[in-house]
């Protein structure tokens, strides 16, 4: 079974996992990683690397602005707000 550092992965995702959850997800994610090895075994020499299967390019819009929806709707889901801004626990990088 492919090993995954579940503690580090959970930390990156800001998830707090119980010991049982860690074991469960380790196994599940390990199987996903293993499947990537199956994909990697396909011979892709001569295939141009691409980020997309779709051959579309340059899906662009003109630089035209329309008014936004404003602070009211923007903050409707915020658990805490003050002075038309989202209030979050103090973060100093």
């Amino acid at each position: 079974m492919e090993h995954i550092d579940i503690g580090y992965t959970a930390k990156l995702a800001r998830l707090e996992l119980s010991k049982d959850e860690q074991e469960l997800y380790s196994a599940q994610l390990g199987r996903i990683l293993e499947y990537f090895h199956v994909l990697s075994s396909v011979d892709t020499s001569g295939v141009e690397p691409t980020a997309h299967a779709n051959p579309l390019h340059n899906v662009l819009r003109e630089d035209v602005a329309v008014p936004g929806f404003g602070a009211g709707p923007a903050l409707a889901n915020a658990p805490q707000q003050r002075e038309d801004q989202v209030l979050v626990p103090r973060v100093i990088e």
């Binding site: 602005a65 329309v66 602070a71 002075e83 038309d84």
Partner: peptide, 14 residues
């Protein structure tokens, strides 16, 4: 297409 300019009131340009 939300506008951007300096000095708008908070969260106006969203």
């Amino acid at each position: 297409d939300a506008p951007y300019y300096f000095g708008a009131s908070p969260n106006e340009l969203t």
